[in-house]
Amino acid sequence: MFYLWRQTALELLGDDADPMQVALKAWEHIGLDTAKSYFPRTNLSKADWLTRMAGNFVGSWMMRGAKIRLEKGENENEVFIIWDRCPFPTSAKEFGATMEEDLAGCDMGLKTTVEQLAAFTNKKLNIETLKAIPKGEGACVRRLWVEE
C-alpha cells in the first residue's frame, strides 16, 4: 500500500519529482504518527521499559507484514529488533523503487519515531541499522539503545 501511494504521489507531482524526497517525507510523517501511538504505551516505571518500547515496533511491523522479533542486548539499555522477512523491499521492486530508497525511507521512519520518543521520555534514545534486507544481508537488524 505504501508504494501504491508513492506511485500516486509521483504521478501527480510529474517527472521532476524526486522519488527519494517523496519517500523520505512520507516516512517522516509515518514516523511522527507512529510515535504518537506509542506514547500512551510508554511506561518508564517498568524496569524493562525499553524492551516494551521495542515491542511496539514489533507490533507495528507485524501489522505491516514483516516477520520480526526482538533479541536482548548486553544490558537493559539495549535491544535488537530483527526483521527476518519484510514485504517492503519486494513491493519496492514491483513499483520500481530502488533498494537505497527503500532502506532510507524505513530508516527515516524509525529515526523520526525514536526522536519523538526521546523527546517524550527525556531519554537519550537512539536507533541504528546494523544489517538490511535491501542490502542483500538477509535480515534487517536494528539496535535500539538508550545512552546513560
Binding site: 510515535a35 504518537k36 506514547f39 500512551p40 519523538q116 523527546a119 517524550f120 527525556n122
Partner: peptide, 8 residues
C-alpha cells in the same frame, strides 16, 4: 518545554 503530546 516542548514535550510531545501523549494524547492526540
Amino acid at each position: 518545554s516542548a514535550v510531545p503530546q501523549r494524547l492526540r
